[in-house]
Design a protein around this nucleic acid. Sequence first.
DNA 1: TCCATGACTCCGC
DNA 2: CGCGGAGCCATGG
Length: 113
Amino acid sequence: MSNLRPRVYDLVLQIPAGRVLAYGDVAGALGCPGAARQVGYAMAALGPGGLDKQGRAVPWQRVILSSGFVAMRGDPVRGPLQRQLLEEEGVQFDGDRVDLKRFRWDLRDVTLV
DNA sequence: TCCATGACTCCGC
DNA sequence: CGCGGAGCCATGG
């Protein structure tokens, strides 16, 4: 299945505020287990404001590392911003990591288009 | 077509 | 529980 990015955005757009998903979760849900890094790349490809090519505001902050930390590579200012955005929508941090037991979104509710 | 690039993961120590 | 290394694979030049 080519064009993974658009599908990544479609799924991320379905993540409810206050919940998070790991890059690997997204890849797996799209039938591409192991393509976690590509999901991260798709996020990095988003323009300012998290807008995709269709102008949709993708809630990129809801995708984090499977360990619960927010990814720190690339733009050093994104990390703190991501954490702030998540806390504003109710996601609580235990130290520097999200408690995945409580905030990881249950993919069973997804309706893939 | 080949090759470098990544906002990743898993596993062993 | 932290670190380092190998594995993974879609994209774009």
